[in-house]
Amino acid sequence: MTAETALAPKHSPRDYKSDIKPVWCPGCGDYSVLGSITKAFSELNLDPENVAVISGIGCSSRIPAYTDCYGFHGVHGRSLPLAAGLKVARPDMTVLVASGDGDGFSIGGNHFMHACRRNVDLTYVVMDNRVYGMTKGQASPTTEPDWDNALTPGGSGISPFRPLVIALAAGANFIARGFSGDQNGTAKLLKEAIEHPGFSFVQILSPCVTFRPDQKTWKDDVHDAAVDPTDEIGRAARRLMTDDGFNTGVLYKGEREAFQPPIGEATATVADLEGKFAL
């Protein structure tokens, strides 16, 4: 560690928080995730104006306004392309994308696959509570098939999908799982995710106290990943296919180069372009 990084951070986590009161229910896991995010920013010594927090729609997607960074609260499911556009146009910005299991895996599922594949240097944080909270309790792509609710009485009957496996298959460069109940541990994961080049995907188990009170047990279910992170895709695939959905930590770290076409380096003028059309 150099002398410089050993210094106290320029900004405290509080400096990244806005004065807007969250709409979340008391006890929501997302409060803690917000804390982990601001803690990670602080520990990375990022200037708030050089950070952008981008989101779609849902409880977790409210996060941008609760930070004092640049932010964009877009439409449902489209946070990843919104963020990719910003990052490609402005590679100097640190871009973190906040989403939930409905926003990210259902309506935004196609973008999730292609963001993994494209590998723009983004950190994608999905607060997974296995329920649509903002619309008051419907099944999401990660909900258990027998979870009873008003829209699909008796349960959706559809197997939940495995976002981490999909991320790996689609080419994500960094895959981790955290738990909102472990604010410091999650902050550490996020810090590593932000620092890792390319597309980093962090699933954060974040219980919904209102519509999924059964998730109270998650604090007992989660456990540290028993093995060190791997950069070997076959091992990662086996691990992610067979895990119980509750092991936390960095599970895969790839070495693919981030997608960043050059921007701002002109080799010709507009007149040169026009010359091609002139007779």
């Binding site: 392309p81 556009g85 910003l86 973008h111 292609h114």
Partner: peptide
């Protein structure tokens, strides 16, 4: 940038423009 669909292309364009 080639996007995965038009939902992505318009949102990417908005993201780039938001970036200035």
């Amino acid at each position: 940038v080639q996007a995965e669909d038009e939902l992505a292309s318009i949102n990417m364009a908005i993201g780039g423009s938001y970036g200035g």
